[in-house]
């Protein structure tokens, strides 16, 4: 089977891979690029565990075909921290105990980063609606929302 050659940028570095044309970006990230921080919860765009940034837009990587990202820019959970230094969103998720099992956490962190880059001072309601596509079954969302609002305050320099 002829594979497609794709050159893209992942977390600021050029990445090159071969894929089957019908293969999703999620499969490619996990299986070809070994970036397993992006999780599959449903494969149909309903849970947000596979959230990544594609050319600056938040998307479900399960609903992107791998060849589509040729020449595009991707950001995944692996690119959120600055080397060893956690991003303030990651730090606040830890401080607020905003994760239990942790499998939805990468998706929430990526989605939160997208939110705060666009809206540095979201209300609770805006935060809840922005994150409505990220399912969490453990926390009841309470501590996640608190972590996001606190991270927003910190990034604004208020905390």
């Amino acid at each position: 089977m002829a594979k497609t050659h794709v050159i893209t940028e992942v977390n600021g570095e050029e990445a090159e891979f071969l894929c089957e044309p019908g293969q999703t970006l999620l499969e490619t990230l996990r299986d070809e690029l070994n970036l397993t921080g992006t999780k599959e919860g449903c494969g149909t765009g309903d849970c947000g565990a596979c959230s990544v940034m594609l050319d600056g837009r938040l998307v479900c990587s399960c609903l992107v075909l791998s060849p589509e990202v040729d020449g595009r820019k991707l950001e995944t959970i692996e690119g959120v921290a600055d080397g060893e230094k956690l991003h303030p969103i990651q730090q606040k998720f830890l401080e607020h105990a905003a994760l239990q099992c942790g499998v939805c956490t990468p998706g929430f962190v990526v989605a939160t980063k997208a939110l705060l880059e666009k809206n540095p001072d979201p209300t609770e309601e805006e935060t809840r609606y922005w994150l409505a596509g990220n399912l969490c079954r453990c926390t009841g969302y309470d501590k996640i929302i608190r972590a996001v609002l606190d991270a927003a305050a910190e990034l604004r320099g208020e905390a």
Binding site: R30, L35, T36, G37, T38, K39, E40, T76, I77, E78, V80, A81, L86, Q90, F93, L94, E95, A97, L99, G102, V103, T105, P106, V109
Partner: peptide, 21 residues
């Protein structure tokens, strides 16, 4: 007390290994 969980850093970084990983 409320210390940060020991497995937390790997989980927020996406480095924790789940079943499919």
């Amino acid at each position: 007390t409320r210390p940060i969980r020991h497995d937390g850093v790997d989980k927020v970084l996406g480095k924790a290994n789940f079943g499919a990983d």
